[in-house]
């Protein structure tokens, strides 16, 4: 069953009613952008080991992924989902601690950057191999069904590249076989929504630069999944406004691509809507910025003061069942 929602037209978007959670969503986007700009700055200053992977341009889609989930739902975010992670409830200090390698973070220096999560709080910890989290989310939903829970959903994000993996294909297929309440949100510069037909998903596409559309369409998809409709696929058109990571200058993105409508900055568009429609006054907007900056500063300062892991003190045991650790030395 394919239902392709028309892409939002910006000319009519101003007249469309503003989603009731637009302001709240904008603040999460602002926080994510502020945090990631700080991380980029720290990386360029040589204070972050490994890499920094940001979601610039993807915040509108991502925030909608996290905003409509309840605590008991399952969220399997991907690389550029800072806004969604925050909206779902990830403490900002988790981000800082993971990037800065704190011993006190959720990954305790054992894994870094966006490879983080708190599975006990229903936020799965992604692995780098794209598509792998789709079936893991399906399994989490099956467990809830086994346990007799009701009205839960799971949501996972995937990029256009990740959608080409066998793992993603297998995961989406098995979701349809099991008829679990799954929402897959894809970020793409091509409209791949017709794939929904083959998978037995309901499919929707939207303009990923338009926060209002993201809230409407992804919010509705979550609602439908929760109500027992088939798995949902939402394909959001957008352009990553950065390289893959900060080591990548994205020089391969041509000016022609940058002029496309899907290459606009969703945060700027959302702020313009706030100003144009006078959703809040200038002073409130400024206070939101200040608040985001203060939260980021606090998270980074906290993480910078944390203890770092040490090789000689590390617990080199990859098993929960310690007595089964292979004694090699």
């Amino acid at each position: 069953m394919l239902q392709t929602a028309p892409r939002s037209k910006r000319t009519t978007a101003k007249k469309a009613p503003v989603h009731e959670r637009f302001r709240e969503a904008f603040r999460w986007m602002l926080l994510a952008r502020t945090m990631e700009e700080k991380l980029v700055s720290l990386y360029r200053g040589g204070h972050i080991t490994g890499g920094v992977y940001i979601g610039k341009g993807q915040e509108a889609i991502s925030v909608a992924c996290g905003l409509f989930l309840e605590k008991n739902d399952i969220f399997a975010p991907l690389i550029r989902d800072q806004a969604g992670r925050s909206a779902f409830g990830e403490p900002l200090v988790d981000v800082a601690r993971t990037y800065l390698g704190s011993r006190l973070g959720p990954m305790r220096g054992r894994d870094g950057n966006i490879h983080r999560g708190r599975p006990s709080d229903n936020q799965l910890a992604m692995i780098s191999h794209l598509g792998a989290m789709v079936s893991a989310t399906v399994g989490a939903l099956m467990a809830k069904r086994f346990k007799g829970e009701k009205k839960f959903v799971g949501l996972t994000a995937i990029g256009e590249g990740g959608m080409q993996t066998g793992s993603c294909h297998e995961g989406m297929n098995i979701a349809a076989v099991e008829q679990v309440p799954l929402v897959v949100v894809a970020f793409a510069s091509h409209d791949l929504v017709e794939r929904a037909i083959g998978y037995g998903f309901e499919g929707y596409s939207l303009d990923g630069t338009d926060l209002n559309a993201c809230l409407d369409v992804i919010g509705s998809a979550v609602k439908r999944a929760r109500a027992g409709r088939p798995p949902q696929l939402v394909v959001a058109a957008m352009l990553r406004l950065s390289g893959h990571g900060e080591h990548d200058d994205a020089s391969y993105v041509t000016d022609e691509i940058k002029r496309q409508p899907f290459a606009q900055d969703c945060l700027k568009l959302a702020e313009k809507k706030i100003v144009d429609l006078e959703l809040v006054d200038a002073e409130t907007l400024r206070s939101w910025r200040d608040d985001a900056a203060a939260k980021v500063e606090e998270a980074i300062t906290t993480a910078q003061q944390d203890p770092q892991p040490a090789g000689e003190k590390e617990d080199w045991c990859a098993l929960h069942t310690r007595e089964l650790l292979d004694q090699m030395e």
């Binding site: 989290m133 079936s135 399906v138 989490a140 939903l141 995961g171 098995i174 076989v177």
Partner: peptide
């Protein structure tokens, strides 16, 4: 029963195990 999808079979099992199964 599952589809012929070994990757997803184990991925699903992982997700279920993380949720108490």
């Amino acid at each position: 029963n599952t589809p012929i999808s070994e990757d997803a079979i184990v991925g699903t099992a992982i997700g279920a195990a993380l949720n108490g199964m």
